[in-house]
């Protein structure tokens, strides 16, 4: 077990370092000079040179890389070239927004997706099954931002049940939930559709296994077979996919945030990409990748505890 843990943690370190490296070099390929962007219309050659020196942009790229990595390990992710604020502070300010959206989305997805998948599998071939699967098919097929647009049109405009803005500065938790609800539902439903399809497949697989057949043959009540025996085992693959889903929902969250004018890590990175704010993009991706990898690793570890077969794989 200790060896397994150590392996996972080592892999996590390599992955995060690798991701940051990829991003660092990728961003250096972006055409455009952040110094010119900052100084804009009134830039002069001298002021550009001074700013490049200040940002270390005049150093050879490998030196910039070493400098960046050295500082990153001490928690200094640089300074946003646009605002002059520490990049980490700006990233941490947008992190709670993303965390709330992604977590609420995943919770909604699990709460809706798993039961639908189970019902569908239990009633395989019925109209219920067909209906659920058609809805789930639509859920994974509509572009998430388009669903968001339509949701605003219907639930904020035609029937003003929810605010059009996905964020509020109110300190009232209920107001916050009210603003979070629509974006979280839009994100959650697309993930729920995926989880429902996955749960159904996993349930069908388990229900076809010998030990389930044996349990049925032995006269164990159907409810017990389905919910005690089959569901528990079917949830293992579902659980392992949630980590992956989390990363993907952070990607979709960029679009959901854009539709609902909601702040967050995704929209911050998007803004920084547009502004050529390397330091901020780096910091954002670093924190984001750390979050994704942390969640995947901890799920892996949990998975390893739950299912010892995984450890040897």
């Amino acid at each position: 077990m200790v060896k397994y843990l150590a392996q996972r943690l080592l892999l996590m370190g390599i992955t995060v370092t690798g991701m940051v490296t990829v991003v660092f070099f990728l961003l250096r390929l972006i055409p455009g000079d952040p110094a010119e962007y900052m100084l804009g219309d009134y830039a002069t050659e001298e002021s550009l040179a001074a700013l490049r020196a200040e940002l270390g942009l005049d150093l050879p790229i490998h030196e910039q890389y070493v400098r960046f990595m050295g500082r990153a390990f001490s928690g200094d992710l640089g300074t946003s070239v646009v605002t002059g604020q520490p990049a980490l502070a700006e990233v941490l300010a947008s992190l709670p927004w993303s965390a709330a959206l992604a977590l609420a989305g995943i919770v909604i997805a699990i709460v809706i997706g798993v039961p639908l998948g189970v019902i569908s599998a239990v009633r395989q071939g019925s109209w219920t099954d067909l209906g659920v699967m058609l809805v789930a098919l639509a859920g994974i097929s509509f572009p998430v931002f388009w669903v968001g647009l339509v949701a605003i049109l219907v639930f904020a405009h035609e029937l003003p049940l929810f605010p059009a803005l996905g964020a509020t500065s109110s300190e009232n938790p209920l107001t916050r939930l009210h603003h979070l609800a629509l974006p979280a539902l839009v994100l959650g439903i697309s993930v729920a559709a995926y989880i429902a399809r996955l749960t159904r497949s996993a349930m069908l697989e388990v229900l076809g296994q010998d030990y389930v057949r044996v349990a049925r043959a032995m006269g164990v009540r159907e409810n017990r077979v389905v919910y005690r025996l089959a569901l528990r085992n079917a949830l293992i693959p579902v659980l392992s996919v949630i980590g992956v889903t989390f990363a993907w929902s952070l990607g979709s969250a960029i679009l959901v945030e854009a539709v609902f004018s909601r702040p967050g890590l995704g929209s911050m990175i998007l803004k920084a990409i547009f502004a050529r704010d390397y330091q901020l993009v780096q910091a954002g991706v670093m924190v984001l990748s750390l979050a994704v990898v942390l969640i995947n690793t901890s799920l892996d570890i949990v998975y390893g505890i739950v299912d010892p077969r995984v450890r040897t794989a």
Partner: peptide, 26 residues
Amino acid sequence: KGHHASFMVKATLAVFATVTAVLTAM
């Protein structure tokens, strides 16, 4: 299997708790 069930319950509770915490800590 017993492990699973309690894990799922705990995980769900943990997620809810985190959401609430994040919402109130904003």
